[in-house]
Design a protein around this nucleic acid. Structure first.
Lengths: 257, 257
DNA sequence: TGCAGTCTTTGAGGCAGATCAAATTGGTTC
DNA sequence: GAACCAATTTGATCTGCCTCAAAGACTGCA
């Protein structure tokens, strides 16, 4: 199933526009754009070098899957650039997106037999992949990393629980407002490393209407109608299908609970 | 706000029916009913003794709150007996229950400034409370505990994500079936420590219809109608409002996705 | 520049679950 | 065991979102 065991740092780096990362593939950590924000941030140079030795850069095409729900959990990874979606399915095929992973986010399930979700690339993605076993061993030997992983997992849990409020209690309008603000803040965050950092008030949606619907627990039609509504009300403006300009941020903020 | 800083191990122990725990309050860990399943399971005798020194037993009455959402995160705790609910609210007062904490479950937010949720007792509850700072220091010094906390947090995250599928994609019938099975399995699990361990096929609901509605993201009326439906179909039987007998488990299992 | 294919928007209608209102029940107290 | 109160159930109606269907608009490619 999982067909990503080949090492392909070269091809991975080749799609990056950041020059610093094209130097070589033997110590890419040092030039990594998420080096200071990812789970490896607290490690010293020596530790980074060791980590570098067990990790591999990998490029994912849009739609490509890194982890399959229910499959053996072979890999863990850091997102370097692009956005990935984490999703799960009911036995009869309904999909629920569990969250998005942005640059510097950690994905995978350490200390678990099987992957609790599928992880696939929304657009072009570069990840830093570790064999789960290697990563676990490294974490054992380097408490700082383990600690960092704990802190990340705790805040991931907080974030996930906040999302439960959205799925359980918010209406379609409030849900879309919440998502737009989240993407907005992720894109305008300093040094976010995602695609081309956007200035001030507009950004590119990293996913299709259908994917937005899956994230929000709605249908594509309902999502589309809400976009139209926001546009008609002058809350946002759109050019093309994915470029959004936020015109009245305060309206979105009042809606996002 | 948080008014639980007084130490009250005596009163806490007094409400327990388990004789072993009534001995004294100086080393209650040794006699603790969740000793082998809680986060402290991997600690050796010496470590348990140290942990014992910083923790306090505390009794909570039904409805009493241990943690307030948004307040400073002063405490973390283990549930010893009873069931607690973790919940969050929208700014306009809609509540969403984030999960239930059963005996041996860990609650609170280590390494965080404020509590991301409220935690209150559904019925009579006994918890083992630690000041967050004390607990964090202890965790730092005892990697086995930190490791255990990491593992727990990771599986809590898995559980929470599975719940997102319920809130995002399941209908009322499927939601109630899922909850009934969860409570059922928690109650019949060996050594569960909750109230009176139930035999075979019937159990006591630890919460009201309104609370079930909040957990499932439904209204009380819809929950009530689903109970009636399950009863009419012979899937469950009820005596009183809270005692449930599961008659056709396979029907519930087919519904729970 | 035109065509094909896919994604998105729009429209019409239906339905699950919400809302509002009233009746019933179970549990508690005296 | 009667009376009271809160919790629950039941009924009637409404509505937000879903479903189904079709038109429209981007994108890539020849």
């Amino acid at each position: 199933m999982a067909n990503i065991s080949e090492r392909s740092p070269d091809e991975a780096v080749s799609v990056l526009s950041e020059n610093a990362e094209q130097r070589n593939d033997l110590n890419f950590c040092q030039a990594c754009s998420v080096r200071n924000r990812a789970i490896c941030a607290d490690l010293d140079d020596h530790e980074v070098e060791l980590l570098n030795g067990i990790g591999r850069r990998r490029h994912l095409d849009p739609g490509e899957t890194l982890l399959w729900e229910g499959e053996e959990a072979i890999f863990v990874a850091n997102v370097v650039s692009g956005v990935m979606k984490l999703s799960t399915q009911t036995s009869d095929g309904r999909e629920q997106i569990l969250g998005l992973a942005y640059p510097s986010d950690f994905i995978g399930r350490p200390f678990g037999e099987t992957s609790p979700y599928s992880a696939d690339a929304l657009g072009e993605v570069v990840v830093c992949v570790f064999r789960r076993m290697d990563f676990e061993r490294f974490a054992h030997e380097h408490p700082r990393l383990e600690r960092k992983l704990l802190e990340r997992t705790l805040s991931e849990l907080d974030k996930t629980r906040r999302w439960m409020l959205l799925l359980g209690r918010l209406n379609a309008e409030e849900r879309l407002a919440t998502l737009l603000l989240e993407i907005f803040s992720r894109n305008t965050a300093p040094m976010c490393g995602y695609a081309s950092p956007q200035d001030n008030d507009h950004f590119e949606l990293p996913m299709s209407r259908q994917q937005i619907a899956d994230i929000l627990g709605l249908t594509i039609e309902t999502v589309s109608r809400q976009f139209t509504k926001f546009r008609d009300e002058g809350v946002i403006a759109m050019s093309g299908r994915r470029r959004v300009t936020v015109r009245r941020r305060e309206v979105l903020e009042a809606l996002a609970k």
